[in-house]
Each structure stands twice: as structure tokens, then as C-alpha cells.
Design a protein around this nucleic acid. Structure first.
Lengths: 142, 142
DNA sequence: TATATTTAAATTGTGCACAATTTAATTTTA
DNA sequence: TAAAATTAAATTGTGCACAATTTAAATATA
């Protein structure tokens, strides 16, 4: 085949573009709620992992969040500076840095509990559509 | 109601997170194809608008791409430096800056034509799922 | 028609994101 | 077990992304 769809390069025919735009819009809508917690969006998803795991090394956190050390190292340092986590080298393997949630980090969870419900109200999908979207997105990620 | 779902703050229960992660992964997959065209992803979606419209002002472009002048001004300057567009002040309204595609910008379309098909091969959705995802994402954007 | 308001870009400043490289520790293997 | 290869974080450098402010032009209104 040697001809191409002439509309293939139209913005409205891209799947990537609404994905890119919707992602940014949703993160933007989080901002006022997260500002109140003094968290950025990236810090918020890192805190979700830490509220669940209590302790995790940089590589494993990166695998969960699809982020590398270039993004995580400065972010974790800033979270440490705010007292939300501690960063310690693993005794068993000095290459590994472990982030551990602090009491202050645990306590932030109380204030964060209201965020998901507030956000749900900002997204114009019903629960069936949300589940459908969730499933399709994870299909891309796997 | 005064109790909350205890799992509401788990990463795996968020819709925002796969949206955020999938968007980044898809943009990352574009990189090798766009590097070959000397375009960033943001420049690529701007070029899609310009291939279609030939000429557009910054505000209208921002409305199409969900981007503001803080992002567009430096990006359009860099596209101008590469010879893909010209930037001119509107005669009718000196506040308005119009980006217009050049011959070189038009010619880049030939090389770009293969990109959408290559990208489609990178996304693990069939055409029905892709349409479903497209529809859900635009529901969020409206 | 002066003055106030609104509007469009540009500028400034902060924080991601990520590729590429570096550093240091650990593991392999010759 | 010494050298090579691998691995985990950190570092470096570039380019978004966006809030907030500034500048300059156009429009509204007193």
C-alpha cells in the first residue's frame, strides 16, 4: 500500500491529542485542591503509594508511577524537606534509596481524603463511562 | 454522609493516574518518529493545525491546543527559527500575532504522513476501542 | 474624547518530564 | 578473585506547562 489517508494528519482524527489534552485538564483541575495540601500532582500520586506501602525504594516507586530518577530524586528531596518522608540508603544495598512516610505524611492523608470525591464532581463522566475509560487506559499501559 | 471510602486514595482506584501515565507513554512513543522530523510533540500538534488552517493567531491556536501564550510564544519562536512558520502582527489589530505556515512547513507534511500509521501500531487498542476511548476523552474535554 | 476596562502576547518564575551521562555499589564471569 | 558488566540514583541539560504579572493595543463608557 502506497497511498495514505489524507485526513490522517488532522488534529481531530488523532487519539493522542485528546489523551494529552484531557490529562492536562484533569491535572489542572486538581491544582486548587492540592494547593490546599501543599502538594503538586506528582507528589500527590507519590503520597498515594506511600500511604499504602509506608516505605518504597526509588526504582519501585518509579515503576509504579512511570517516572525515572531524574524526576523522582528532586521531588523526593522536596517532600523530605517538607517533612512528609525520610530518605535513607538501604543497609543491604547501598545503591538503593528508600523513601519512608513520616507521621506528618500519614496525617496529611486525613486532609486528602476529600479530594477524590471533589475531583469526581469535576469530571463529566458517569461511573460506567469512568470504568470504561479506566479499562481502556490500562490497556494502553500494559 | 460523613464517612469516606477507605480505598478512595489508592493509586489503583484513580482515573486520573492512568490518564496521566498513558498520555505520557503515548507522547514518549512519538519521540523517535518526531525526532526524525525535528519536531517536539507540542510542535507536531501545532503543525497539524497549521497544515489544515495555513494561518492562525496565537489565541485561536491556544484554544485548539489547550495551551496558553506562555507555552506558545517560545514554541512558535522556535518554529519560526526553524523556518516552519512566520510570525507577523495583524495589521487590523496590532495585539494579535499570526502564525503562517511556510513552504518548508508545508513540505514537512510529506515526511509526517507516515507517523499516524506507525503510532497506531504502538497503541494496543483495536479500532473499536480506540473510538470508544476517543469519545470518552472528548467528553472530559467538553 | 479623555479615561477606564478589556484583550492579546510576552515575560517571569517554578516544577515537572525525560534523555543522556556520571558515580558508586553490586554482581558476573573469565 | 580481579576485571568487566550491570544496576540504582544522582546529575545535567532541554523543553514543555502554567500561574501570575507586564506591556501595549483596542474597545467601552463617563
Amino acid at each position: 500500500m502506497n497511498s495514505f489517508n489524507p485526513d490522517a494528519l488532522k488534529l481531530e482524527n488523532q487519539l493522542c491529542f485528546p489523551l494529552y489534552a484531557a490529562s492536562k485538564e484533569v491535572v489542572r483541575k486538581y491544582r486548587p485542591y492540592l494547593d490546599a495540601l501543599d502538594l503538586t500532582y506528582t507528589q500527590y500520586i507519590a503520597m498515594m503509594v506511600l500511604w499504602e506501602e509506608k516505605s518504597i525504594n526509588v526504582k519501585a516507586l518509579g515503576a509504579r508511577l512511570f517516572l525515572d530518577s531524574g524526576t523522582l530524586t528532586p521531588m523526593l528531596k522536596s517532600m523530605e524537606a517538607k517533612g512528609l518522608i525520610t530518605r535513607t540508603r538501604s543497609k543491604a544495598d547501598e545503591r538503593v534509596v528508600v523513601a519512608t512516610i513520616t507521621q506528618k505524611g500519614e496525617e496529611l492523608k486525613k486532609a486528602a481524603k476529600a479530594v477524590p470525591l471533589k475531583m469526581a464532581g469535576c469530571i463529566s463522566l458517569n461511573s460506567e463511562e469512568a470504568l470504561q475509560l479506566y479499562t481502556l487506559l490500562y490497556k494502553i499501559l500494559e
